[in-house]
């Protein structure tokens, strides 16, 4: 009599949890954890977070990078601002750079289109290649480079010209458009991509400086897009904007990432969490951690990243 199987329908007590995996089942999953460890093994490993300061933890490199940065150090005179950074930026990814003030993230971003050339005391060591081409090669012309790698700054900085002129200025000097119809087309598509067309199409010849802050920033993005860049660098593009304008720019970043590679420096961690695929954390000039954004904000690998994003040091 006692050999009645417990799962016979007459038994109302059988919990659905009885069908859950046993611990042994879980242990038998091949490669359930990272690096061949089982989940349980990994969970009980007595590991603490990485504390290494001279090596980047996480995934700084990727396959088929758009931009390849190797051992880049940046000096302002005697003072070193960035220490031996290795980083790949993938095609069509949005990578966010975060870190406390003075950590070198903006300096690093500015290296990517040689914006630091304008600072006399600034010296860049190491190599940065854009699709395999060394952007610091002596013979390289920085003007087309900066068209390929455009930049949007913290404060909207439209030229003191009309909206139309703001957008078409770049294509004109790069010789991308000469006929009026071509120029009209570039202006319209750029403003459309920047999500500004509907708001300004009736006043294209009024000054760009007359727009609101958020509109000015989108105008600057339109201006960047107008020269058909491959990469867009954004240095705290929303820090001077209100939440609504910020939301529009963030929406735009998501759309733009379908066609462009975007690197964004931001002080807003929520912004980094919202817009980026990967997040890079800089600390005192060193690249501490690069990981998928979801991982960085839920369970970062490095204790410094953890301390920074949870607001544990200033």
């Amino acid at each position: 009599m006692s050999d009645i199987p417990v799962s016979t329908p007459i038994n109302p007590m059988l919990g659905d949890n009885m069908q859950q995996a046993t611990l042994d089942d879980r242990n038998n999953i091949p490669n359930a954890g990272h690096g061949g460890h089982t989940v349980i093994e990994e969970a009980t490993q007595d590991k603490v977070k990485a504390t290494e300061k001279n090596k980047t933890v996480g995934k700084p490199l990727c396959d088929n990078p758009k931009i390849e940065v190797r051992d880049v150090s940046v000096f302002y005179g005697e003072k070193q601002a960035v220490f031996g950074v290795d980083l790949d930026i993938a095609k069509n990814e949005v990578i966010a750079m975060i870190g406390p003030s003075g950590c070198g993230k903006s300096t690093f971003l500015r290296c990517l289109n040689r914006m630091n050339d304008t600072v006399d005391t600034c010296r860049v060591e190491g190599s940065i290649t854009l699709e395999g081409q060394d952007i610091y090669a002596p013979k390289l012309d920085v003007v087309p480079l900066r068209a390929k790698v455009g930049m949007v700054f913290q404060k909207p900085n439209p030229f003191p010209k009309s909206i139309y002129e703001n957008v078409i200025y770049g294509p004109k000097i790069h010789g991308l458009a000469s006929r009026r119809s071509e120029m009209d087309e570039i202006v319209e598509t750029s403003l459309r991509k920047a999500g500004l067309w509907e708001e300004v199409k009736d006043r294209l010849h009024q000054p760009g400086t007359g727009l609101s802050g958020g509109q000015q920033q989108r105008l600057c993005i339109a201006r960047t897009i107008a020269v058909s860049p491959e990469v867009i660098l954004m240095d705290e593009p929303c820090s001077a904007l209100d939440p609504i304008a910020t939301a529009k720019i963030e929406e735009l970043i998501a759309e733009l990432s379908q066609n462009y590679t975007i690197a964004i420096v931001t002080h807003s961690m929520q912004q980094a969490a919202r817009v980026s695929n990967r997040t890079a954390y800089f600390h005192l000039g060193k690249l501490i951690e690069v990981n998928d954004t979801q991982l960085v904000f839920t369970n970062p690998d490095h204790e410094l990243t953890e301390a920074y994003i949870t607001g544990r040091f200033g």
Partner: peptide, 11 residues
């Protein structure tokens, strides 16, 4: 930061 619930797919 590890989710060990129901890690077995077949389950």
């Amino acid at each position: 930061g590890m989710d060990i619930r129901r890690t077995d797919l077949s389950d």
